[in-house]
Amino acid sequence: MRNILRLRPVHHILVTSAAVLLACAAVLALQLAEFGQARAALEGFGPQTTATVTGSAEDSATVRFAVPGRPDVSATIGLDSTPPANGSRVPVRYDPADPARAVIPGATPLITADRASTYATVTVVAALAVLLVTGFLLLTRFVRPARAAVRSTVPVRRVKLQRGLLTRSWLETEGATPRWIPVYFSPTLIGLPSPVKVEVLGDLRQDRHVAVRVAGEVLYPAGATRMAEPRGRRTDNPAGPDEERSAAAVRPVPLRHQFRTDLPVLAVAPVAGVFWALVDGSGFTGWLVVTVLIAAFGFWWAALRGSDPS
């Protein structure tokens, strides 16, 4: 297990997983702070009665209701939803010490508290999902394949396939029934001739995830082996590496270069944030939360899929 943790793709996955967890922690802290402020704004509310709407604006409503032992009270309440129609009757809760301080369904503190609690819950669930998925994939894509015995030796070609914003490396086997094995990036892939013989760790016909060994290095699967050619813009390795490729094959590729390569994956994050803020009506806070989470999950998703920075 210790050797597994030293692998470059495992470092990539763990770093991006940590980034997601940090983003989730930041969002959770923000939502808990907003929830606390909203709850503080609701402190002191006690009795509930029925009020009549006497006026409304785009983001507020004025209601009038009876208070025992006092004249009828009129209160203007800020809203984060569509104001009720004039003349309609709505439930209202008020502060006995200051009846003009009241809330009705859709009041800003109520919506803020509800939204913050929902965001916080979703964030916790997302963080737990990241931990579970990361652990499961480390087991199925690294630990189990590393323990498998060599079952066959097959000729393969390394191909790069770009689909959308993501580029991945695949090993295409030769033969009557070819297979396509997605692999995590290693500089060794750059210098592989086409074809080259590799040792398959596991049963290529039956196992969902198989690793291969070439030139003494194990290349780990970045997904399930396929029987049909994956879609995308294809680039094949040449029959033999030139001097530049041979040099690149032995030159380490730092993770910071990997992250720069993955930056296009983040392009959708601010756009999705704007869309969510408009739909949810959560404004800048909603945009920030969604943008940060999608950006972090984008890096993580690219790492899990085995993005190729070469």
Results as ranks from 00 to 15, higher is better:
residue 42 L to Y: 07
residue 139 L to G: 09
residue 47 P to N: 09
residue 51 A to P: 06
residue 222 A to R: 01
residue 69 G to F: 10
residue 41 A to K: 09
residue 227 M to L: 15
residue 149 A to V: 11
residue 88 S to H: 07
residue 271 V to C: 09
residue 133 V to Y: 09
residue 203 D to E: 07
residue 42 L to S: 03
residue 213 R to G: 03
residue 107 A to D: 02
residue 8 R to D: 10
residue 181 I to R: 00
residue 281 G to H: 10
residue 54 T to F: 01
residue 273 G to H: 08
residue 168 R to Y: 02
residue 74 S to A: 14
residue 56 S to R: 15
residue 114 D to V: 10
residue 175 G to V: 07
residue 158 R to G: 00
residue 71 P to N: 12
residue 309 P to V: 05
residue 102 A to E: 02
residue 106 G to I: 02
residue 256 R to V: 12
residue 99 P to L: 02
residue 172 E to Q: 14
residue 295 A to M: 09
residue 261 T to F: 11
residue 267 A to S: 12
residue 108 T to Y: 10
residue 295 A to Q: 06
residue 107 A to I: 04
residue 275 F to K: 07
residue 120 A to Q: 09
residue 165 L to I: 12
residue 4 I to N: 05
residue 214 V to E: 04
residue 298 G to T: 06
residue 260 R to P: 04
residue 230 P to V: 06
residue 263 L to I: 13
residue 295 A to F: 08
residue 50 T to F: 10
residue 45 F to H: 13
residue 305 R to Q: 14
residue 91 P to M: 03
residue 168 R to M: 09
residue 35 F to K: 14
residue 112 T to N: 10
residue 199 E to R: 11
residue 258 Q to T: 13
residue 122 V to Q: 08
residue 185 F to D: 00
residue 35 F to D: 11
residue 37 Q to K: 14
residue 135 G to M: 07
residue 249 A to C: 07
residue 28 L to V: 08
residue 23 A to R: 01
residue 8 R to H: 13
residue 190 I to N: 00
